[in-house]
């Protein structure tokens, strides 16, 4: 593997890592397999697109808006639709989040059409050299920002009262309830945090790549793989899973051809499920 390839893989993997964490938290802690996650990521991209078209706002700034808007949307969805159904089990939440995906997809198609869109910032073409490899500035920035966001999520979970509450609920729901933690509130915040991370990823994605509603399905496929690789609800696990998927896709494209890229991811995921059902990191929750 050349240095250039490794760098490409890691830069892509960083974005996957951020993308996978939100999904992994929602699944592992709130118990919801969010099939509308891809739609939420792309919604973040379009929010940045609007801010760029209207105010020439850089996606690295408008991502704050994406995150905030998606946080509110996530909280609203959880409170009104998911919370009442969560006891019905996985079939219900799967179908419900799938229905949500249809609704969001339809809104996106109606407002922005199915065309691929791009956000072209002035520094989009800049590169810098590292050894004999070239690193696109914008991908590098996105990687750094993703890293910071992952660390902030980790700090939130470890240091804040709410974060510790979420952890407690994840480890032992009844116990958390017994010591007076509002369990439903923790699930809600955790779910909304997950959608906020989806929105943030969408903005970062939009700063680099083009996007369209066609990407919805493949994003969901990727976050599944990342979450399974890392172990559900595990922040560093999902981060590692994202990097690993980035590397697998990049090298897989070289060795097997890019047409096998998705199959490779699926095979890795199923293998991990069968041999290491708690993910490669082996621990179920945080740390």
């Amino acid at each position: 593997m050349s240095l250039q390839m490794l760098i490409n893989a890691i830069l892509l993997g960083g974005l996957y890592a951020l993308m996978g964490i939100g999904f992994s938290l929602q699944w592992g802690i709130s118990g919801i397999i969010n099939l509308s996650y891809g739609a939420m990521v792309i919604l973040g991209s379009y929010i940045s697109l609007e801010f760029f078209n209207l105010f020439h706002l850089d996606p690295f700034i408008s991502m704050i808006m994406s995150g905030a808007i998606l946080f509110v949307i996530g909280a609203a969805i959880y409170r009104t639709l998911l919370q009442p159904l969560i006891k019905g089990g996985i079939v219900f939440t799967l179908i419900l989040t799938f229905a949500l995906r249809l609704v969001i997809e339809n809104i996106i198609l109606k407002v922005w059409s199915a065309d691929y869109r791009t956000i072209r910032v002035t520094y989009a073409g800049s590169n810098f050299q590292f050894g004999d490899a070239y690193i696109p500035l914008i991908k590098f920035l996105a990687f750094i920002v993703a890293g910071i966001l992952i660390y902030l999520t980790y700090l939130f979970m470890m240091k804040t009262k709410t974060g510790k509450g979420i952890q407690a609920v994840a480890l032992d729901k009844e116990g958390a309830q017994a010591v007076g933690i509002d369990v439903e509130k923790m699930y809600l915040i955790n779910f909304a945090l997950g959608t906020a991370l989806a929105g943030l990823t969408g903005s970062l994605w939009a700063s680099i790549y083009s996007f369209s509603p066609h990407l919805l399905g493949s994003i969901v496929g990727k976050v599944f793989i990342i979450a399974i690789l890392g172990g559900l609800g595990n922040i560093w696990g999902a981060a590692a899973g994202g990097l690993l998927l980035g590397i697998a896709e990049t090298t897989g494209a070289v060795f097997f051809g890019s047409e096998w890229q998705e199959a490779l991811g699926m095979v890795i995921m199923v293998s991990v499920l069968v041999w290491r059902p708690y993910g490669l990191m082996g621990k179920k929750f945080f740390g």
């Binding site: 397999i33 399974i228 199959a263 699926m266 095979v267 199923v270 499920l273 069968v274």
Partner: peptide, 21 residues
């Protein structure tokens, strides 16, 4: 052997892999 969520997801993965083949 996998329960609940995991079985559902593994079957999606297999379906995706077969599609690629």
């Amino acid at each position: 052997r996998l329960r609940g969520h995991y079985f559902a997801i593994a079957t999606i993965g297999m379906s995706g892999a077969l599609l690629s083949v």
